[in-house]
């Protein structure tokens, strides 16, 4: 059987792009410290901490280059990173504002006045829940219980808890954020 001209350049995995992110030596060392917590043949364990505590912090969200980097670093397929990352609600697979306002909407906060707080924030910022302000400063999300029910209503901005919220408190807080 004859063989037609065969292109020699096959791609192993077709990605958005094959380019991987690069990180500073300090960040790389930080990653290695996370990886060192787990047995050497169980590097995958470090996936979630690295995505949440390093890649998302450094790149703003879980971007393509970050995924490619982690796949190489942890010897995984990109799709392995994808399957894990999309399961967890704290990973932003799309860019978000500099300050990610996450208002708890579960029962205790809801009965203690979450709707008013949400409305206040949205009015103030002029956006709906799920949107980002045009200046890319704020994104507003509603999230499920953050373990702060005794101090409801509450929200988290980035990793910081803000509890016992009132509209006035919210105003002061938002004013103080760049």
């Amino acid at each position: 059987m004859s063989t037609a001209a065969v292109p020699t350049d096959y791609t192993n995995r077709v990605l958005y792009s094959e380019e991987a992110a690069s990180f500073s030596p300090e960040v790389l060392a930080e990653m290695d410290a996370h990886i060192a917590k787990y047995p050497p043949d169980r590097k995958r364990s470090a996936l979630i901490p690295l995505l949440l505590l390093v890649v998302q912090r450094e790149r703003g969200y879980i971007d393509n280059a970050g995924v490619n980097f982690l796949a190489q670093k942890l010897e995984l397929e990109v799709t392995d990173v994808w399957e894990t990352a999309t399961f967890y609600s704290m990973f932003n697979m799309r860019p978000v504002g500099r300050h990610h306002i996450q208002i708890c909407k579960t029962l205790s906060c809801r009965v203690m006045g979450e709707p008013q707080i949400t409305e206040h924030i949205c009015n103030r910022l002029g956006i709906h829940v799920g949107e980002t302000t045009p200046d890319e400063r704020f994104t507003v999300s509603l999230v499920e219980c953050l373990g702060s029910c005794g101090t409801a209503p509450m929200m988290q901005i980035g990793f910081d808890y803000h509890e016992d919220l009132t509209p006035e408190k919210v105003d002061k807080l938002l004013d103080s954020l760049e």
Binding site: Y16, N64, W82, E83, T86, F87, Y88
Partner: peptide, 16 residues
């Protein structure tokens, strides 16, 4: 091919 997303939004697919 893997599952992505969670709950009722789970889809079977692949990165990209």
């Amino acid at each position: 091919i893997e599952a992505g997303n969670r709950g009722v939004n789970t889809v079977i697919g692949t990165y990209g």
